[in-house]
């Protein structure tokens, strides 16, 4: 069972602001899902099994160091919610 503190900790890591309702709900739902997931524990010792992080058996897919045109700045900024001085404006890190 996920504790309230665990839920809040994970939410903070994930930058999600949860409502009281969601904290309650996610705690219960995730615990139930994790109960099912923990069935992979039944498979016992897997220390001899290689983990699969890629199903494609290729290596060294590399790109030549050849420049390709960048986007015009207007293009880069066109979807941004807050633009100033040719850049993406954000609240300053560290500002209260």
């Amino acid at each position: 069972m996920l504790s309230r503190d665990q839920v809040l900790h994970v939410a903070k890591l994930a930058r999600l602001e949860l409502t009281e309702d969601e904290i309650e709900r996610f705690g219960g739902e995730l615990s139930k899902v994790l109960d099912h997931i923990e069935k992979i524990g039944e498979l016992g010792d897997l220390s001899d099994v290689e983990p699969t992080s890629h199903v494609v058996a290729v290596e060294n897919v590399l790109r030549d160091d050849e420049p390709r045109p960048s986007m015009p700045r207007e293009r880069a900024l066109e979807s941004a919610p807050d633009v100033a001085q040719g850049g993406f404006r954000v609240p300053s890190p560290g500002a209260a």
Binding site: A76, V90, P93, A95
Partner: peptide
Amino acid sequence: RIHGSDASIVDY
């Protein structure tokens, strides 16, 4: 400086 300003511009 970081602590004195309220907004920043990101240049990628």
